[in-house]
């Protein structure tokens, strides 16, 4: 678990699974979620195990989230933006994508 140290910076609010989270600009989405106490990021693609951030540097692909409707976003590499809608990544990710 993590906590935020006090810091300056422009306030930003994002939406995670329908919850409003407050954070500041200049943070990655992964950092913002961890700082708000969120640990569970996604289900693993093969057996649906719970997974969370591992490396924080773009290597492990464990931090994948659905951001603004787009799945598979590497959240440790993407900065928060006001109003971003974020969801946990489920598997498989195209269930309702493609009906005829």
């Amino acid at each position: 678990m993590f906590k935020k140290l006090p810091q300056n910076g422009e306030k930003v609010s994002i939406d995670f699974e329908g919850k409003r989270l407050e954070t500041v600009t200049g943070q990655t989405v992964a950092a913002a979620l961890l700082g708000s106490g969120e640990m569970l990021f996604r289900e693993s693609a093969v057996t649906g195990q719970p997974r969370s951030v591992y490396c924080m540097m773009g290597v492990c692909f464990e931090c994948l989230l659905e951001i603004d409707g787009k799945p598979n976003q590497q959240s440790c590499m993407i900065l928060v933006q006001e109003g971003m809608k974020i969801r946990r990544q489920q598997r498989p990710i195209m269930e309702n994508h493609a009906s005829a």
């Binding site: 943070q27 990021f41 924080m56």
Partner: peptide, 23 residues
């Protein structure tokens, strides 16, 4: 692979880049 197990440097990145520390 359990949430809560991380690379050590990940925590350093969180601290330096985002002011976030373990509790």
């Amino acid at each position: 692979t359990l949430p809560g197990v991380m690379a050590c440097t990940a925590v350093d990145v969180l601290y330096k880049s985002a002011g976030i520390v373990p509790k």
